[in-house]
Amino acid sequence: MNEQQIDEKITLEQVRIMELVHHRTLEKFTAGPAVKRTRLFFLLLPYLNGEYWSSETEASSKTVSIVQAALDAHEHVEENGAANLEQQLTVLAGDYYSGVYYQVLARLKNIDLVRQLSSAIAEISENKASLYESLPWRPTDIEIAVGEIEAGLIRTFYEFYSYGSYERLAIRALSLLRYESELELLKSGGRSPLLNVLAKATGSMLTAEQWLHEKVNTLYSEVVHLAKQQPLQKELESFLLNRVLPHRKMEQLIREG
């Protein structure tokens, strides 16, 4: 599969998921479902790399994206914002997508995956909520929480369909992308629950920034190594490094002179 075909498969997947969760009012008044191409890339990774992929796997993979869209919608609800129309419908969008994912799996009679994904959603919610708690956070705890929040659903899907060998790569890469966005936020003067616990765990916002820098560099090297070790097909590896993580690659090249 060349890069264009990979791109087309991701686009097709994106379109089909959007069709499944289509709702006129939600689309009119909210940001709509966040079906990120990066996540789709990792979700489809075993297929793109030539692994056995049945029609059932294909259908189930879409529900993972729908659940992710549900959880992401609720991330757009402001902590203390007033109840305006967009915010109200954003709450309901998340709930609606959750209903759709359940309905799709119920129709597929895949109740075992309902159980596994539900378990992952509960764990992700626990990890997200824990960022609001006064816990004796250590950086390693934060890494585990971030890995679960960012890749918990994909990990569950991989385990369910015996694609466990892709797990580490997805967790590292998706964590890397999260740390990058937190770093950007921090540099622009923003704050988030994750940045707050990182500052507590490392001592200050300044040390949190250093920690994030180091972490993204380490994770990038790890991802490059894991992509080779997997091994990923050449085009896929290239797609990963040039399209999914292009910014990091540029930084690496600059650093290496």
């Binding site: 609800v77 109740i111 539900s118 919610s125 909520a129 609001y132």
Partner: peptide, 28 residues
Amino acid sequence: NRVAMYTGDFMFARALEHAAAVRNPVLH
């Protein structure tokens, strides 16, 4: 609000985890 979102999502997930013990797809 955010904690309320996580609480609702958590309870909903636990609900489906519990319901998954029922094998009849029609019920689902």
